[in-house]
């Protein structure tokens, strides 16, 4: 078939426009904003705007399916009259404090062990990290079964070993045991993050420092306190800050394991806010409860920006 003149593309109006767009997009001051726009739109519409809504809800008597009125900070103040809220406030600090402390201490131990010469290194790392990648809601179901009041395998083992008297504690039905259970699952799930991140920090410490210290007669304990710990500090700071905010705002574990019970003794802000905001429909009050997470978030962001990013660059 012969090629007709019409088939040969001739640059006309449109290609010139395309060329101009191309040239335009090659400028950093234009390409930058273009590239950033989708993310920016998303964050403004679905993060910043809902946040403002949360502020408004929290200062209104919003109730599902009813027009709301502005009532100022009355929600925030009135919450303190509620036993459930005061208990939740206390729980949040107890839960976060204990869980983060355990994760930090065990995380350092585990990282030190993982940093040794090991057989099956890949397998061990894979096993250690597993609790962190499996969907929390599902793995917590496994724990729920392990803490079952009749068939608890924890109690069975405890009794078999002689740690517990039959029938053993009713883990999810008694106040302090329930908190212990919730903290245990949180530590179980969060430990891999600590261990693997701290391990990365350990690997980065120059070997020569240890060799020099050993030559000067420093034992393993001295080397840990004088070299390892000080040099790990930046990594530890990041991990603790990160974990604090995500432990404080935890929802999945408590929701699946105890639903906040018995008698609110394991409720956290997120779970109480769901009960009040969704189950009973008092959106205003629910939003006020979840906004109690905000001051801690501000602190963590401030600390990260102030100390951590400065070191990273």
């Amino acid at each position: 078939m012969a090629v007709r003149a019409d088939d040969i593309p001739v640059p006309r109006g449109r290609p010139r426009l395309a060329g101009r767009v191309r040239e335009w997009l090659d400028q950093e001051s234009i390409l930058g904003p273009v590239f950033v726009t989708p993310a920016l739109l998303l964050l403004v519409l679905l993060v910043a705007y809902p946040f403002l809504m949360a502020l408004y809800f929290a200062m209104s008597n919003a109730f599902i399916g009813r027009p709301s009125e502005f009532i100022g900070i009355r929600n925030f103040v009135r919450l303190w009259d509620s036993d459930a809220f005061r208990q939740t406030f206390q729980n949040a600090f107890v839960f976060t404090g204990i869980a983060v402390a355990f994760k930090l201490v065990f995380g350092i131990c585990l990282a030190l062990l993982l940093n040794e010469q090991l057989w099956f290194k890949r397998f061990i790392r894979g096993a250690v990290l597993l609790p962190w990648v499996i969907p929390t809601a599902l793995s917590t179901l496994g724990w729920w079964w392990m803490f079952n009041s009749l068939y608890s395998v924890v109690n069975w083992t405890g009794i078999a070993v002689g740690f517990m008297d039959p029938p053993g504690p009713n883990w999810l039905g008694q106040k302090y045991y329930a908190m212990t259970a919730v903290v245990t699952v949180n530590v179980w799930r969060g430990l891999p993050f600590f261990a693997i991140t701290i391990l990365a920090g350990l690997v980065a410490i120059p070997r020569e420092l240890y060799e020099a210290a050993e030559a000067d007669g420093a034992g393993p304990v001295a080397r840990f306190w004088l070299i390892t710990l000080p040099l790990l500090k930046p990594v530890l700071a990041i991990v603790v800050l990160f974990s604090t905010i995500f432990t404080f705002s935890d929802f999945n574990i408590v929701y699946v394991l105890t639903r906040g019970g018995p008698i609110n003794s394991t409720h956290l802000f997120a779970t109480l806010s769901r009960v009040v905001g969704i189950d009973t429909g008092r959106i205003g009050e629910g939003a006020a409860i979840s906004l109690y997470l905000f001051p801690l978030l501000v602190f963590v962001v401030w600390a990260q920006l102030r100390f951590v990013r400065k070191q990273a660059y």
Binding site: E28, S29, I30, L31, G32, P33, F35, V36, A39, L40, L43, L46, V47, P50, F51, M53, A54, F57, F242, I245, F246, F248, S249, D250, F251, F269, A270, S273, R274, G277, I278, I283, G286, A287, S290, L291, L293, F294, L297, V300, V301, Q304, L305, R309
Partner: peptide, 29 residues
């Protein structure tokens, strides 16, 4: 790329990275 507002945007991304989902689920609903 260097362009107007790049640092602010970077900080914004970092801040939203730290926002827990349990803070905004009510208004998002």
């Amino acid at each position: 790329l260097r362009f107007f507002g790049v640092d602010t945007f970077g900080t914004g991304i970092f801040v939203t990275y730290l926002v827990p989902t349990s803070l905004l689920f009510l208004p998002l609903a």
